[in-house]
């Protein structure tokens, strides 16, 4: 049985939305046990109001919470028994197989980084986010491309970017069942020499020493077009990009709402388009994504959106379960080892 630990107190809507989503997941996943970490009284009170399978839920009481606006390092130091820290501990001790949290992103990354080991060949972890594009990919007809890193590692070296590319490619193979994901580096031009040193260095390494389906550099406008299935960048760049994409999506919806109020003709036009808009909304709805995986550790953490409602959290748990079933960490480790072997072989026979 898979044991997925959920930080029940992390997130804007915690613990209610988190516990409800976890409860929903117990009904969908017959082979999983969910360990809810947090205030047992609050968790119990919410559980009693939602449908769930009580025999697949374990509550692990812990009194402290790290809130969304707290500084990660300080908060973790002053609250060693915070739910996110205890959740990461349970995984580190082998009492759980993976972790899901919708809490403070910095604290989640730090809690994992301090307790878990990095995979051989990985110097820094990457937080990956999925983004809907025009194209469909893989056996699952997945509309999402993967963007990493979106904030775990602010400055990434060429080596880090290559490791991100390898891990992202493995994730796309396992989760989207995309046999040969197209991997690209995000830069300010498609030419090989464009971009800062880490990007040009990574470009060279990816071409020479990996068996990935590397398609070169892409520009920002190529992301929503779906030119690449895995887009690699530093955490600083990725965070700016993902927040801008979210902002654009929200602005489009606000404009539509404004138009709906403003003129009758616009309202009629929107009503005529409502089917399409709903479809578009469902594709661009982050609640469907199932969270962002934190890649690079020997264990798996899925970071759900801070504003996660029950459905989003349940989807995050389902993705975690899928990743465990497919041994995502094992697949990433194998790809990284293969890269090391190729590099060593090239070094031996230049």
């Amino acid at each position: 049985m898979q044991r997925i630990v959920v930080d029940a107190m992390g997130g804007d809507e915690a613990p209610e939305a988190i516990v409800e989503g976890a409860g929903e997941a117990t009904l969908a996943l017959a082979d999983s046990e969910l360990i809810l970490v947090g205030d047992s009284a609050q968790i119990g009170s919410t559980l009693s109001r939602v449908r769930h399978d009580g025999s697949r839920v374990r509550v692990h009481h812990t009194p402290s919470v790290i809130y969304m606006d707290e500084k990660p390092a300080e908060a973790l130091a002053s609250k060693p028994d915070a739910s996110v820290a205890v959740a990461a501990d349970l995984v580190a001790r082998g009492e759980a197989d993976a972790m899901v949290t919708a809490g403070n992103t910095g604290a989640s990354v730090l809690a994992c980084a301090r307790r878990w080991e990095l995979l051989p060949g990985v110097r820094r972890a990457a937080l990956a986010a999925v983004y809907p594009t025009e194209l469909r990919r893989g056996e699952n007809n997945d509309p999402f491309s993967l963007l990493l890193d979106v904030g775990a590692t602010i400055d990434a070296s060429a080596e880090d970017l290559v490791a991100f590319a390898i891990m992202g490619s493995a994730y796309a193979q396992v989760i989207s069942q995309n046999a040969r994901p197209r991997v690209a580096l995000l830069s300010n031009g498609t030419e090989a020499g464009k971009g800062p040193e880490p990007v040009t260095g990574a470009h060279k390494l990816l071409l020479e020493a990996t068996g990935l389906n590397f398609i070169g550099n892409i520009e920002g406008l190529d992301i929503p077009r779906g030119v690449a299935d895995v887009v690699v960048c530093s955490g600083y760049v990725g965070n700016v990009v993902i927040k801008m994409l979210e902002g654009v999506s929200e602005t489009v919806l606000s404009l539509a709402r404004y138009a709906h109020k403003e003129r009758l003709m616009w309202r009629v036009a929107l009503a005529m388009l409502s089917g399409g808009i709903q479809r578009l909304k469902s594709i661009t709805d982050w609640k469907q994504y199932g969270g962002a995986p934190l890649l690079g550790f020997n264990n798996l953490c899925i970071k759900a959106h801070g504003r996660s409602q029950p459905q989003a959290l349940a989807n995050a748990v389902k993705v975690t379960s899928k990743a465990l079933r497919s041994d995502l960490c094992g697949a990433m480790a194998a790809s990284l080892a293969e890269f090391q072997e190729r590099r060593e072989a090239r070094a031996a026979n230049p």
């Binding site: 046990e33 047992s40 009580g54 025999s55 374990r58 509550v59």
Partner: peptide
Amino acid sequence: DIEIATLANSLQDLLRR
């Protein structure tokens, strides 16, 4: 479909309630 964990969780559930 049933493991020790399932039974242990069932016990915990009754205590919690």
